[in-house]
């Protein structure tokens, strides 16, 4: 019987046990478990990898704890701009959006771009116009509002600091007890198809219409039935420069590496050398799942019909 596997992440960064309260930790575990269960149920019912990762990510986007969809961080102007991408490893079809506002589930919009547009990558107001035309669910600004994210933004609004996902370099005080994150999912379905997706609210206080790696096919998100599905989280600029997600696939296809070896090379050698903090999750065509991080923690969970089960935060 074909193995089915789902792995998800809720962001990587300086996530330390000593900064966490037991309640918050439990809330993260619950959020991850709920998303994993939601996505895995789709696979168990014979659903596609694309639908499974979409289901898992919708749950994470709807969860205030994670920096995607509801609960996204604020930009310099005090608005929330979200990015998402999805890729189907069977057809190499892909869809991505960047800088969208008021779209309840950016991953739904990315999927719509993949399935029902001539394009791969839509941005800004144009992407929102496309969402309206296609009947994608919108929400008012208040829906995305989270007091915690807002306080975080206000505190650094007038500084030139910006904060990554979960890195509290500039923000140690502020982020002492709460952490942030991109979300992502990869899956192998019963038909042997692989898919990958990522969704994020980006960096707190980001300026200048910055685009990170999440919506960039090949950098933050990539899937190919021949090799693997990958979703990344971390210092986006470094993941773009190293074309991180696709590099894993290339190392497997052209160099014959295993998924694990390829991910180790990219995350723990190449990215470390560049100073790129973060991690990634991956699944290969045989249903092996791998989660590699070079930061202190990454919210992550996974399950496979081969018996693999994981729910973890710290390294």
């Amino acid at each position: 019987m074909q193995t089915i596997t789902l792995a998800i992440h809720g962001g990587a960064g300086t996530i330390l046990k000593e900064d966490m309260t037991p309640e918050l930790e439990q809330a993260y575990y619950n959020g991850l478990q709920e998303a994993l269960n939601g996505g895995y149920a789709v696979l168990e019912e014979g659903g596609s990898a694309v639908n499974a990762i979409k289901a898992a990510i919708v749950i994470l986007e709807d969860n205030m704890l994670f920096n995607a969809g509801r609960g996204s961080v604020f930009t310099k102007k005090g608005v929330q701009e979200m990015d998402a991408a999805i890729m189907d490893g069977k057809t190499l079809d892909a869809g991505a959006v960047t800088g969208v506002r008021n779209v309840r589930n950016p991953i739904e919009l990315a999927t719509e771009v993949m399935r029902n547009s001539n394009h791969v990558f839509l941005s800004g107001k144009g992407a929102t116009d496309f969402a309206i035309k296609q009947g994608i669910k919108l929400e008012p600004d208040e829906y995305f509002f989270s007091q915690f994210r807002y306080d975080q933004w206000k505190a650094i609004r007038d500084s030139d600091n910006y904060s990554l996902d979960h890195t509290h370099q500039h923000l140690e005080e502020l982020m002492k007890d709460k952490k942030f994150g991109t979300v992502g999912a990869v899956a192998l379905d019963a038909e042997g198809n692989i898919a990958a997706a990522t969704s994020t609210g980006g960096m707190t206080n980001k300026k200048y219409g910055r685009i990170g790696d999440s919506p960039i096919i090949g950098s933050g998100t990539y899937a190919n039935n021949k090799t693997c599905g990958i979703s990344c989280t971390g210092h986006g600029e470094m993941f773009i420069r190293s074309v991180a997600a696709y590099d894993v696939s290339c190392l497997m296809e052209y160099k014959g590496m295993s998924l694990k070896d390829a991910m180790e090379v990219v995350v723990n050698e190449k990215l470390v050398k560049m100073g790129g903090e973060g991690g990634m999750i991956g699944v290969d065509a045989r249903g092996n799942a791998v989660m590699v991080l070079n930061s202190a923690g990454m919210y992550r969970a996974g399950r496979s019909s081969n018996g693999w089960n994981e729910l973890a935060i710290y390294k």
Binding site: G126, I216, G218, V243
Partner: peptide, 17 residues
Amino acid sequence: KKYGRVGDAPIIGAGTY
């Protein structure tokens, strides 16, 4: 082009590397 379409040219790894 519509909808704020972005092509490969500005994408590192796709149009430029």
